[in-house]
Design a protein around this nucleic acid. Structure first.
Length: 446
DNA sequence: ATAGGGTTAG
């Protein structure tokens, strides 16, 4: 149910009748003030005959917009209320509060957990705590994990995701952990676990047998196919270099949705099969499936790499006009790249000047590289200034060379020297950082 | 019937 946000509390009170109605409204609330208002109305409206967990449910729903507002004072105020009305005894309220705190202040979350009575501390609470530790410190997360007596599928998946996302555990070790879970501990993996493992394998770009063994698990254990799992399998096979297996999985998906098509189209483009990617995209549209933003980034980047300027222009127009999708920075980056690569520098610059979001480093770099290649200093001028005003990280330090080359092309020798100086300062900072890091490591003596 | 884990992109 959608609720007019401008209603005053009094009007709301007359507009909403049952507690069920208020709960539904509260669930959909996005701004903290309306959530608090709805929550107070819920408390007024609640009759003694209503089950007590109703307030608890309300508190859980109110906590979401509250933590999204990321205001610690607001959250601790609500916390005080929960304490006073004795609602923290409900595990679902406690776990929600813990989750909210873990996003704002891990230290408070930790403290809250330590103070919790054992009766409140169920698996939900424990797993929220684990998740919180995972996002701050891997070692203490693992210690905590080892101390959980009856680890369930969520505990294992959380730990697994932590290992993969931090890149602290190689894929081989990650899979050993997966085996420890499913084989040694006999905890069945569900589709979230499998998506986690597949994403981990895919991002590590590791060997194909890993992906196969997970695929094997899916088939053997008859894990219910979800669109996420299917798409992850396609994505993983494509990323580890087996487009043929990806296609086979894609062909066998019973009810294909946009996610499967996206994964397959991205896979095709990844393997430089641009024409096939575009054909697949057209086939999907022809079948009446509505494309999403992600597919368009894949298709547009395929156009850029294949040098299909007009095709790219048409697809961009299609995205905006026919499908009503708002172009993101990725789409603009693709368009700039399409024009820039083809040497149509004016068109590329035009995209930058008319786009509705602030151009980022990727976009400027794409234009500047083309300016150098096609020898056009005039179009580069604004970009150079913008880039120099941005934070340039070590991996982008090649930009200084690019800019210095562009200045040389424009015969702006004073600026060439200035950029060289900037580059030296940057390198100096970098080296000093490295030296300090090196001092910290203990030398091993054999 | 309320709460916890994953989500694709040059």
């Amino acid at each position: 149910m959608s609720l007019p946000q401008h209603l005053a509390a009094g009007e709301l009170l007359t507009a909403l009748h049952g507690t069920g109605e208020i709960l539904t409204a509260l669930r959909g609330a996005t701004c903290p003030s309306s959530a608090i208002r709805l929550y107070s109305i819920l408390r007024i409206r609640l009759r003694p005959s209503d089950p007590s967990y109703c307030v608890g449910r309300g508190a859980v729903f109110a906590l979401k917009p509250l933590s999204a507002a990321s205001s610690l004072p607001l959250l601790s105020h609500f916390h005080a209320h929960l304490l006073k009305s004795n609602l923290l005894a409900y595990p679902h309220v406690a776990s929600s509060l813990l989750r909210s705190y873990s996003l704002l202040s891990p230290a408070i979350a930790h403290h809250l957990f330590d103070q919790m009575p054992p009766a409140t501390c169920n698996m939900f609470v424990v797993n929220v705590m684990l998740r919180s530790l995972c996002s701050s410190d891997l070692t203490s997360a693992r210690l905590f994990f080892d101390g959980i007596p009856d680890k369930d599928v969520v505990s294992w998946s959380t730990m697994l995701a932590c290992y993969f996302s931090k890149g602290r555990l190689g894929v081989a070790d990650g899979l050993a952990f997966f085996r420890e879970m499913t084989f040694t501990s006999q905890v069945a993996a569900d589709y979230v676990t499998l998506v986690t493992v597949l994403t981990g394998c895919a991002s590590a770009g590791l060997l194909q047998p890993f992906c196969r063994s997970i695929h094997g698990y899916v088939v053997r254990r008859r894990v219910p196919a979800s669109s996420h799992l299917g798409a992850s399998l396609i994505d993983c096979y494509a990323k580890v270099g087996h487009l043929d297996y990806a296609s086979r999985v894609f062909a066998r998906v019973a009810s294909r949705n946009v996610m499967h098509w996206t994964a397959m189209i991205c896979g095709m483009a990844m393997h430089l099969h641009y024409d096939e990617a575009i054909q697949l995209f057209e086939k999907m549209c022809w079948r009446g499936l509505g494309p999403n933003e992600m597919i368009f980034t894949a298709v547009l980047s395929a156009c850029g790499r294949a040098g299909l300027v007009e095709q790219g222009r048409v697809f961009f127009q299609l995205m905006v006009e026919k499908y009503g999708l708002e172009p993101s920075i990725h789409h603009y980056a693709c368009m700039v790249d399409i024009f820039a690569k083809a040497g149509q520098l004016e068109d590329a610059y035009d995209v930058i000047k008319t786009m509705k979001v602030e151009p980022n480093l990727v976009i400027w770099t794409s234009l500047l590289a083309a300016c150098k290649r096609f020898k056009n200093f005039d179009i580069a001028v604004e970009g150079i200034e913008k880039v120099l005003a941005m934070e340039i990280s070590d991996e982008n330090s090649g930009l200084y060379t690019l800019i210095s080359d562009l200045y040389a092309m424009g015969e702006r020798w004073g600026d060439v020297i200035k950029v060289r100086r900037l580059m030296e300062e940057h390198n100096l900072r970098k080296n000093r950082g490295l030296r300090r890091a090196r001092d910290l490591t203990v030398p091993t003596i054999s």
